[in-house]
């Protein structure tokens, strides 16, 4: 077992522990902070698994922007989660256990982690790896697949981000630049 693999196991174990802590915690501020740590750990896992581009994005998005958005939501809503009395805690646990058991059963015969002979590596990917340096002429294969081979995809994703921005502005509106100390104050 290589050092990479050991770090991978350790980081994923940390993430599992944090996930359980998120379930237990009632303080939502703490949940947001734990989530930031969770994202940072997953960025570490992505680095270990050779996905530098993804790790970059996850570190900036997960540990940065989404934590801030969650904290901003908490300042406008409640900081504490109320204990729920009406819900039966056993039923979701049973549903989740059965689903999880079926998924574990489903993964039992998939190729082992890192297997070079796995079906994923046989089809489209070899062409990207072998031909993209000569066809596209840039070294970073992730960029060439993202922007050129799968340009339609990325156009769609960019449109989704734009649309989400429009939706948030439609829901929350946008305050004018200098109005906070003005007429709005007396309505509070």
């Amino acid at each position: 077992m290589s050092l990479d693999h050991a770090i991978d196991i350790l980081l994923l174990a940390f993430m599992a522990v944090i996930a359980l802590a998120v379930v237990r915690l009632r303080d939502l501020f703490g949940v947001a902070m734990l989530f930031s740590v969770f994202s940072l750990l997953s960025a570490g896992v992505f680095t270990i698994m050779d996905a530098a581009d993804v790790a970059f994005t996850e570190a900036a998005v997960g540990a940065g922007i989404s934590t801030i958005l969650m904290l901003a939501t908490l300042t406008r809503t409640a900081r504490e989660e109320k204990p729920n009395v009406s819900r039966n805690p056993a039923l979701p646990l049973i549903v989740v256990s059965i689903t999880g058991a079926m998924l574990v059963f489903g993964t039992s015969d998939i190729p082992r982690f890192g297997d070079p002979q796995a079906p994923v590596h046989q089809h489209v990917a070899p062409r990207y790896i072998e031909d993209s340096p000569s066809e596209i002429g840039i070294p970073n294969m992730v960029t060439s697949v993202l922007a050129s081979y799968r340009g339609y995809d990325t156009l769609g994703e960019t449109t989704v981000i734009f649309t989400a921005g429009v939706a948030v502005m439609a829901l929350l509106g946008m305050r004018r630049t200098r109005r906070r100390n003005g007429q709005r104050k007396d309505t509070d």
């Binding site: 939501t73 990917a125 990207y128 994703e157 981000i161 989400a164």
Partner: peptide, 24 residues
């Protein structure tokens, strides 16, 4: 394999945008 990296890279940014809609 670069292909999953591409798919997830875009999914992360789209994910935060949709989470923002949910939070709003």
């Amino acid at each position: 394999n670069p292909l999953p990296h591409v798919l997830i890279l875009t999914a992360i940014v789209v994910g935060v945008a949709t989470t923002a809609v949910a939070l709003s």
